[in-house]
């Protein structure tokens, strides 16, 4: 079953049914990408739910999720297809007798070669083609969601190769000819922005920047995913995390870390965010020693919001 979203509100609703809270921004751009048939490039800090978005879209549309995890050194044979040499060799061995039959009757060498050529297709057929994620997404009988995860980790050459695939969803395998997609997959690329992607790739995609959520959004996520946490504590916890993100940390806590932390608080049966609880659980949230120290210091003496003097006309003097 494949349902497609027919408005921004349905996107929002369907995604929230999958326990993914989409902001207006996300919903609108997902809807656009789907309507325009363009790949969606989601960028943002680690752990804000980029991969999660792809998963939610897949299950909301009832499509299969095909995931291509990128890493340094990823190449065509890992991403697209590979001939299964060992299987081909094995088949040749086992079929030797049969081959002898076929070729034995040949009068001349030319005839034997001709006969062999007729059988060539047996060895270069889909049977021996090892489908990697990209080819799988293209050849699938059902429409799919293709997630190309952390594209910024792959090499620049791979990006160039990906361009061809993404622009017309067809690949040419020299032995088989051109294979084109039966259904255009819904493509989502994610990037942690560790390096700049090429202009050409960006040009072909719609761009969605997912940042850390604001207080309300994050609280909603925590409520949804960790329903057992008492609401007051949840509020406190999220406020604390939000404050940590504003502070200059080596690694800001992500949403997934907030959720881990919330779960830890539930497990410890904490009722209040006091010093002891924090000492025990803060390492779930912060993964650097320096950050931990800093956070503890900050919690003990929270910064006072600066009060602006209520006066006066002077504020508008040409500053």
């Amino acid at each position: 079953m494949t349902t497609l979203f027919d408005s921004t509100t349905t996107v929002k609703k369907e995604l929230s049914d999958q326990r993914y809270i989409a902001s207006d921004e996300i919903a609108t751009i997902v809807f656009l990408a789907q309507k325009l048939g363009k790949p969606l490039l989601a960028e943002g800090p680690a752990g804000v739910g980029k991969t999660e978005l792809a998963k939610a879209i897949a299950s909301a549309t009832g499509r299969e999720l095909i995931r291509l995890q990128c890493y340094e050194g990823l190449d065509e044979s890992k991403a697209l297809y590979e001939w299964e040499y060992s299987k081909q060799l094995l088949y040749t061995q086992l079929l030797r007798d049969k081959l002898n039959d076929t070729l034995g009757k040949a009068e001349s060498l030319t005839e034997a070669a001709d006969r062999l050529a007729k059988e060539e297709d047996v060895f270069f057929s889909n049977r021996f083609l090892l489908q990697r994620p990209l080819l799988k997404a293209i050849l699938s009988d059902q429409p799919t969601v293709l997630l190309i995860d952390e594209i910024d980790r792959a090499d620049a050459e791979f990006e160039a190769f990906l361009l061809e695939v993404l622009s017309d969803f067809q690949v040419s395998v020299p032995e088989l000819g051109t294979l084109s997609a039966k259904h255009k997959p819904f493509v989502i690329l994610t990037s942690n922005n560790t390096r700049e992607l090429s202009e050409a790739l960006k040009r072909r995609c719609l761009y969605l920047f997912i940042d850390y959520p604001n207080l309300q959004e994050e609280l909603a996520v925590v409520r949804l995913k960790v329903p057992n946490l008492n609401p007051k504590l949840a509020q406190q916890a999220v406020e604390f995390v939000q404050r940590l993100r504003k502070a200059d940390m080596r690694k800001s806590p992500s949403i997934s870390e907030t959720l881990d932390w919330a779960n830890a608080l539930v497990a410890l049966n904490a009722s209040n965010l006091d010093k002891d609880v924090l000492e025990d659980t803060l390492s779930v949230l912060l993964k650097h020693e320096a950050d931990l120290q800093k956070a503890k210091r900050q919690l003990l003496n929270p910064p006072q919001p600066k009060q602006r003097p209520a006066d006066d006309l002077g504020r508008f003097s040409g500053n």
Binding site: T8, D24, T28, E196, K202, C205
Partner: peptide, 13 residues
């Protein structure tokens, strides 16, 4: 949504 449609298509960085 007008703003978002322009932004998603024009801005890639």
């Amino acid at each position: 949504s007008f703003r978002l449609s322009l932004r998603a298509t024009l801005i890639k960085d």
